[in-house]
């Protein structure tokens, strides 16, 4: 099962992705688990991606499916993308769809 650490506050869900790779070997389970977390929370989501060192198009598909499962009004912010992950979002133009921010906002 993919390792996702959830910190829930009054106003938001912070989900730390503790997986080095989001690839075809894990994409379906990752999607199911993350979707379950964000739908149960019903709060704005911040996804800490700093540990993810590699993602392929099946991992991207999982992220898109989770975004689509959330009501449009609920923000899903991706923070701390590593270069390999940022590349996939950029080359597929999905960086124009997702709210992507530097990791600095995660300091607390």
């Amino acid at each position: 099962m993919p390792t996702l650490i959830v910190n829930e506050t009054e106003t938001q869900l912070i989900v730390v992705v503790e997986e080095a790779r989001i690839d075809a070997a894990i994409a379906t389970r990752f999607k199911d688990r993350l979707r379950e977390i964000v739908l149960r929370g019903r709060k704005p989501v911040r996804l800490d991606m700093r540990r993810v060192d590699f993602m392929d198009s099946s991992g991207l598909g999982a992220m898109i499916a989770v975004r689509k499962a959330l009501p449009e009004a609920l923000p899903l912010v991706l923070e701390g993308l590593t270069p390999n992950v940022e590349r996939v979002f950029r080359l597929t133009r999905m960086d124009s769809v997702f709210d992507i921010r530097p990791a600095t906002t995660l300091q607390e």
Binding site: S57, G61, K68, V88, L91
Partner: peptide
């Protein structure tokens, strides 16, 4: 209605 696939060969 975002596409969830079809990126592989483009990449």
């Amino acid at each position: 209605d975002l596409p969830e696939g079809g990126f592989g060969w483009c990449l």
